[in-house]
Design a binder for these strands. Structure first.
Lengths: 113, 113
DNA sequence: TTTTCATATTCGCTTAGGCAAATATAACCT
DNA sequence: AGGTTATATTTGCCTAAGCGAATATGAAAA
C-alpha cells in the first residue's frame, strides 16, 4: 500500500485554484459520485476529469473507491482545522462561480438514474 | 483611476497557493506593513517581495498606500462571504506552515523600530 | 479469449508563473 | 541638477500544469 505524506497547505490551495476542480469538489459536497457522473454533468472529456481527480487525490482532498468497472469519488474527511476551513470555502463559492448552480441542477436531474 | 474587475475565485485561491505569499498574507493579519518590513522578515530579495505583492494586489487581497518613498500594504477588507472564509484559512495555516511562527517572532522583534 | 466498457495515463504542445539579476521609476536630499 | 533610497518592472530561464488526442489498463461480458 502507498501511504502518502500529508499534502502541504499550498498544494491544497492550488487544488482549489482551478475552475474544473472547484466544480468537481462542489459536486462532491452532495456525496459520493462516480466518474461518469462528473463527466456527464461537467460536459468535459473523460481524460480531463480523470486528470483533475488525480490531482485532487494527490492533494488529499478526495478518496477513490473502485467497484467493478466504476470508480467512486468522495470528499476526504477534514484532517485538521485548516482542511475544514478550506472545505467551508466551497459553500461560499456558490454565488461567485456561475457554473456551480448549473452543475447542481444538472446533477439533481440525473439523480434518479 | 483604475477600478479593477472583481477577481475570480480561482485567482484568489491561487494567490494563496504559494509559500511566500502565504507568509506575506499572514504577516499582514497583524496590520499594515511596509515593503521593507516584509523583505527584512522573510529574508527575501526585494524584487521577489514586490512581485508577490503585485500578485496579491491583482487578486484583490491587499491594498497599497504610498507615503513618500515607502509603500504600505494591508489586507483588503473582505468583500463577500467567500473572501471572509478565505481569510479565515490564514489563521488555521499557522500550525501547518512552519515558517509562519518564525516570521511572527521576527516581526514582533522588529516592532519597536 | 475476444470484445466492450469505465477509467487512467501518456504525449506533444502551450501558457502561467516561479526565480535571480539587472534595470527603471519616483520621491526625497543636498 | 545630481545622488540616494525604497519600491517596481523587465529579462531570460526553467518547471508546473493546463489542454486534446491517442493509448493503456483492467474488469466484466459474450
Amino acid at each position: 500500500m502507498k501511504t502518502r505524506a500529508k499534502p502541504t497547505v499550498d498544494l491544497m490551495f492550488r487544488a482549489f485554484s482551478d475552475r474544473t476542480r472547484l466544480r468537481i469538489l462542489h459536486m462532491l459536497t452532495g456525496g459520493e459520485l462516480c466518474v461518469c457522473d462528473i463527466v456527464a454533468v461537467l460536459r468535459v472529456p473523460q481524460p480531463k476529469a480523470s486528470r483533475h481527480l488525480a490531482y485532487l487525490r494527490r492533494a488529499g482532498l478526495v478518496t477513490a473507491r473502485k467497484e467493478g468497472l466504476w470508480s467512486y469519488y468522495e470528499l476526504a474527511p477534514a484532517r485538521d482545522a485548516f482542511h475544514k476551513k478550506l472545505l467551508d470555502c466551497l459553500g461560499c463559492c456558490f454565488s461567485e462561480v456561475p457554473e456551480l448552480a448549473a452543475d447542481a441542477k444538472q446533477l439533481a436531474a440525473r439523480r434518479p438514474c
